[in-house]
Amino acid sequence: MSSNTSRVALVTGASGGIGRAVAERLAADGIAVGVHYAGNKTRADETVAAITSAGGRAVAVGGDVADEHAMSAAFDAVEREFGGLDVVVNTAGIMLLSPIATLDLDDLDRMHRTNIRGTFVVSQQAARRVRGGGAIINFSTSVTRLQFPAYGAYVASKGAVEAMTLVLAREMRGKDITVNAVAPGPTATPLFLEGKDEDTIANLSKAAPLERLGTPQDIAETVAFLAGPARWVNGQVLYTNGGIA
């Protein structure tokens, strides 16, 4: 495995929240980072600026994760800028909550497109391009174990992510590439906090034995572990949730 100073990562959904924390954490390890965004180039540029001002290397790349042509171009751009690709982290996803009985099926289709097809498209490109000694890291959710009401469609999409991730790990036999999924629990991101009252947030904060919400940086530490030293962790779902499940 090459040293981190010559390693390159692409992080999808890296313009904010967990994705930005992951991009900054990998850059702190000396990894050059492609900062992917779907619609918010300004926030992606802010992430790039934060990384470069801290002495790291980064470039912003855009595109719909579910569009194979856009993602092929994004992978091309990162390889062109930094000379190859060693780590792909797929944090991009959307969460639309509703009881199954009343879910708008258009919301189901939107989550399917981004969370399932998007993960599949990015994983497909990663499987073709990541160099030996590299890592592919997808994102699930601890709600697959917690079974919170109103999360049915979202959890269905993430269950699919776990299944394809574990199959891809076996398909990469002989290539020295690990494939894993990270499954965060309640994490203090704008996406998570939006629409929740203080009591709900307080109750969720107490749910884990560590009695707090996770932070994006907590999740990023697990990704950095899988992206770097964790060469014997492969074909796994890592529940990163403080012991909530």
Rank of each mutant, 00 (worst) to 15 (best):
T165I: 09
K175E: 10
V87Q: 07
V121L: 12
D107P: 07
M164C: 11
V33G: 09
E68I: 15
A181F: 04
V223A: 03
I137Q: 08
T102P: 00
A224F: 05
R128Q: 11
R117A: 07
V59W: 04
V130S: 07
G159C: 14
M1E: 10
R145F: 02
R131Q: 15
I18Q: 05
T200D: 03
V237M: 09
S53T: 15
L168P: 08
V8A: 08
S53N: 15
R110Y: 09
E24Q: 13
A23G: 14
G84M: 06
L166S: 14
I94T: 14
A92R: 06
P186Y: 00
V65F: 01
I244A: 05
D86K: 08
A160G: 04
H69R: 14
I51H: 15
N180L: 08
A14R: 06
R173M: 06
A70G: 06
A135P: 14
A58D: 14
E68G: 15
D64S: 09
R231W: 13
R131K: 15
K158F: 02
G13R: 08
A9F: 09
F82A: 07
A50N: 14
I137S: 09
Y239V: 03
R231T: 15
N180V: 07
L193M: 12
I219K: 13
L210K: 06
T91Y: 10
A50Q: 13
M111Y: 12
I116H: 13
R170V: 00
V179I: 02
V167Y: 05
A245K: 06
G242F: 00
R128T: 08
I177H: 01
R170P: 00
P190A: 06
T215V: 04
F148A: 05
D199P: 11
V182Y: 07
K196V: 04
T215R: 01
D45H: 11
H112A: 10
T189M: 02
A66P: 11
R212G: 00
E211G: 04
A230C: 10
A74I: 07
Q124I: 02
A60F: 11
T215F: 01
D176I: 10
D64Q: 13
I31H: 11
V233S: 14
I116Q: 13
P229I: 03
R7S: 06
T42V: 05
A163L: 02
A224E: 04
A188M: 03
A77I: 03
L168Q: 10
E79M: 01
N234I: 04
R131A: 12
A49T: 15
V48A: 09
E162C: 03
A54V: 11
A66Y: 12
A153G: 09
A208M: 02
P149Y: 01
A101H: 05
